[in-house]
């Protein structure tokens, strides 16, 4: 399962970078979305995947009896998803405004500030 996920994450990163290198700003934002999701999946995978072992401590005990899944990566991912959501919402508005102001969705035309 971990091997499969590793390939999935790799393909997602590759797809994200490919989309970001296209000229359209819409594809750029799609690339950013894929990128943040790929990073989240990566955390999920490298922290170790475990099936059917929720991190529950039996009543009266102070530590779980057997090895359980690590809940921390999921907390990290949850935080990262919320942050990514906010940032992506901003980027969608940004490209909309940029399209209105600049009048094109082609990144190659947005060269005024380059040197």
């Amino acid at each position: 399962m971990e091997t499969l996920m590793a390939y999935v994450v790799g393909v997602m990163f590759a797809a994200a970078v490919y989309m970001m290198l296209r000229r359209s700003i819409v594809k750029l934002v799609i690339g950013l979305m894929l990128l943040s999701n790929a990073a989240n999946l990566l955390i999920f995978t490298v922290a170790g995947m475990k099936q059917g072992a929720p991190p529950l401590i039996p009543e009266g005990a102070e530590a779980p009896a057997t090895a359980v899944a690590d809940p921390l990566p999921q907390a990290l991912i949850l935080t990262a998803i919320v942050i990514a959501f906010g940032v992506l919402a901003f980027s969608v508005v940004l490209i909309h405004r940029a399209y209105e102001v600049v009048g094109t969705d082609d990144l190659d035309q947005m060269k005024d500030t380059d040197t």
Binding site: M20, I25, L28, L32, L35, S36, V87, F90, S91, L94, I95, R97, A98, V101, V102, L107, M110, K111, D112, T113
Partner: peptide, 18 residues
């Protein structure tokens, strides 16, 4: 929301998110 700001911001946002 000036034109130069939008163009600069797209590069800034993209590379910083990357």
């Amino acid at each position: 929301g000036e034109r130069a700001q939008m163009e600069g911001a797209i590069k800034y946002v993209t590379l910083n998110l990357f």
